[in-house]
Simulated assay, not measured.
Amino acid sequence: MRAMLMAEPGSPDVLQPADVSKPGPLGEHDILVRVKAIGVNPIDTKLRGRGTFYPEKMPAILGCDGAGVVEAAGSEVTRFRLGDEVYFCNGGIGAAPGTYAEYTVMNEHVAAAKPASLDFMQAAATPLVLITAWESLHDRAQIIAGQDILIHAGAGGVGHMAIQLAKAAGCRVITTVGSAEKAEFARQMGADETVLYKEQDFARAVLDWSDGEGVDVALDTVGGAIFEQTFGAVRPYGKVVTLLQPGPDTDWKQARLHNLQISLELMLSPMYMGWKDALRHQGWILEQCAQLFDRGELAVHVSHKLPLEQAPEAHRLIEAGGMIGKVVLTVD
């Protein structure tokens, strides 16, 4: 089968096309999926640049996100039949081959039926960012209707999904963006208010928007100084969820004084640690979100569609920054 292989860490050009063996044999609960499209994520570029979590297992096939058709199934598979269309987040961190290939194998419980309203490219763009946004808002922050939510980088992959999930839950949303174009996109995704963080003090703007109270929940997708500055935008006893590891020089004084609840979110942990219940939960999240897509409460923006062999260019696009939405690779 065709695949993009990474033999060593480095620039995007370390991703090279190759013919490799089709994966198999299948375990009792495994499905073999013919990949139709692949979502490209920042984690792919980071692993390509610095090396995978399993450097002893090289060369590697990167890619966590995908969508395709079930072509074979293990003897105990009950959730899918041959020919079913699925989407999933699985592999690609170095332990098992990822999705930059014509075929991939996974346990049936991490996959979900592809939303009928999405094509393969749209579906492939969503799993990692959807699961991240859902776990952040629903599992960590436990948002409820009527709350005010701050979402950083609302035009990004996680950000534009988080805006929509928060709105579907009945919340008001304010988001930070870097340009007028991104502000318009975030409003199209449902944001009630946008803040141009390059021109405004976002914490001050959030306080003004929330009548001086601060938001109930903030989702930090940026990290660094933004994480610490976010404390000033959250009401006392509010919640902050961050996708990044706080730096050792973080000043926690305001967070402590205001009794903020700080949560960390890394959706790759269940795959890396082998937490089976958490992986099943992520499959369930994709099932719930498929219903939201098909009801018109969720949409995904795919900004670039490239053939599999142009994976290096996809990485360059992401590393250049400023993306609106997602980049997808297609497999004929």
Rank of each mutant, 00 (worst) to 15 (best):
V222Y: 14
D216A: 14
G224A: 07
G232R: 13
T230C: 10
G232F: 14
T242Q: 00
S210Q: 05
F231P: 05
F227S: 06
A225E: 15
K198T: 15
R235V: 06
Q229T: 02
R235L: 11
D216S: 09
L219S: 02
L244G: 02
E213G: 05
G238H: 13
D216L: 05
L207F: 09
Q229I: 01
K198L: 15
V234Y: 06
F202D: 00
G238W: 14
A203I: 03
P236D: 05
V240K: 08
G238L: 14
A218H: 03
D220F: 13
V234M: 03
E228C: 12
V222Q: 08
K239N: 14
D201P: 11
A205H: 07
I226M: 15
D211N: 00
D201K: 09
T221K: 04
W209M: 03
L219R: 03
A205I: 07
V206Q: 00
E213A: 10
K239S: 15
Q229M: 09
D208Y: 02
G223K: 10
V206H: 03
L244W: 04
V240L: 14
G223C: 09
G238Q: 12
S210R: 01
D208F: 02
D201L: 13
A225M: 06
F231M: 10
F227H: 09
S210I: 00
R204Y: 04
E199C: 11
D208N: 00
L244S: 07
L207N: 04
T230E: 04
V217Y: 12
L207R: 08
V217A: 10
G224V: 01
V241G: 05
R235C: 07
D216Q: 07
T221R: 02
D220S: 09
V240W: 12
S210Y: 01
I226F: 15
V215K: 00
E199A: 15
T230R: 04
F231C: 08
D201S: 11
V241I: 15
G238K: 11
R204E: 02
D201H: 14
E213T: 05
I226G: 06
F227M: 09
V240C: 12
W209H: 06
S210N: 03
A225H: 14
E228G: 12
G224H: 05
E213F: 05
G232D: 15
L244K: 11
Q229P: 02
S210P: 01
V215H: 03
G214K: 01
